[in-house]
């Protein structure tokens, strides 16, 4: 694999898995991301972080893919008039994964995404905010909510008596 890319594929795969919650769809997302990056290679400023650039492309690719699938789904639903939403269980729930992973996958996408970028991929709050095109405060409050949800799910809520005041921008 090309030396510029070899360290970025695994992180991109992790992000794709967290975004799509489906192994096959994550493969497609990584491939589409690379294809878009090839097209847009000229827009990459070599002085800037390549990983951040690639993650930004994946985020946008996923967003546009989702918009597309929402559209396809609504058309399909109109045609077949199916009232019940029979989405199959995520592969992550059928395969054995630890409880934390399952909890992550149950988070709303906006929280799952910031959790992944910051906690798993160690992006700074500022970089994550730029990638997602959000204010830093929003990113941090989503992250705080994500952590809280994981704690609650696993029954490890904090005893708030010892905690300092929460001063998060909501």
């Amino acid at each position: 694999m090309h030396p510029l890319l070899k360290d970025h594929i695994l992180p991109l795969r992790r992000y794709a898995l967290a975004l799509t919650r489906d192994a096959d769809q994550s493969d497609d997302l990584v491939q589409e991301t690379l294809a878009r990056a090839i097209e847009g290679a000229g827009s990459w400023d070599p002085r800037r972080d390549l990983r951040k650039w690639l993650f930004g492309i994946m985020h946008n690719t996923h967003l546009s893919g989702r918009r597309r699938s929402v559209l396809e789904k609504s058309v399909a639903q109109e045609i077949t008039s199916i009232s019940s939403d029979s989405t199959p269980a995520s592969q992550f729930q059928s395969v054995h994964f630890n409880e934390t992973m399952a909890s992550l996958m149950r988070l709303p996408e906006e929280q799952r995404e910031v959790m992944l970028l910051i906690a798993v991929e160690s992006f700074s709050y500022k970089d994550a905010a730029e990638m997602l095109d959000l204010p830093v405060g929003t990113v941090m409050s989503r992250l705080a909510r994500a952590r809280e949800a994981l704690r609650t799910e696993q029954g490890t809520e904090r005893d708030s008596s010892q905690r300092p005041d929460l001063r998060l921008v909501r």
């Binding site: 070899k6 594929i9 795969r13 493969d27 491939q31 090839i38």
Partner: peptide, 25 residues
Amino acid sequence: ALTEAAAARSNHMLELPAERLGRRL
């Protein structure tokens, strides 16, 4: 957990586009 899940996927289909992207960059 995510690293394990990600590493389990085959990179076969990515070799060519990654190579091409690397060269362009």
